[in-house]
């Protein structure tokens, strides 16, 4: 499966908790021990095993557009760009 990652703008997050409900890999949690500048508990990516696939479902549901999504460049295409 493709590997990916996300970057969450934590100060933009309002802690609505929608992204964890849609993440198919269950790698997003609401960080109860963290407060952002607005005073919300923001969403964080907890993905020690690299399970995020970069499917971007979290970015589709996010009402505050805080999530930027990346996906691994497929091996064939990477060699092509190198050549």
């Amino acid at each position: 499966m493709a590997k990916g990652t996300i970057i969450i703008d934590q100060d933009c997050c309002k802690g609505c908790g929608l992204c964890p409900t849609v993440c198919p890999q269950h790698v997003i949690t609401m960080e109860e021990n963290l407060l952002n500048e607005k005073g919300y508990h923001p969403a964080v990516l907890v993905d020690p095993d690299g399970q995020c696939t970069g499917c971007a479902v979290c970015a589709v549901i996010c009402p505050d557009v805080c999530i930027t999504v990346f996906r691994e460049v497929p091996a064939q295409r990477r060699s092509k760009t190198a050549a």
């Binding site: 990916g4 100060d11 309002k14 908790g17 929608l18 930027t68 999504v69 990477r78």
Partner: peptide
């Protein structure tokens, strides 16, 4: 990040400000 390509980012037609809408 290294070896990754951008899949999704904030659209250009949105100003980079935080909205006043309620959470969710």
């Amino acid at each position: 990040p290294e070896g990754m390509q951008l899949v999704y980012e904030r659209p250009k037609a949105l100003v980079d400000v935080h909205t006043h809408y309620c959470p969710g």
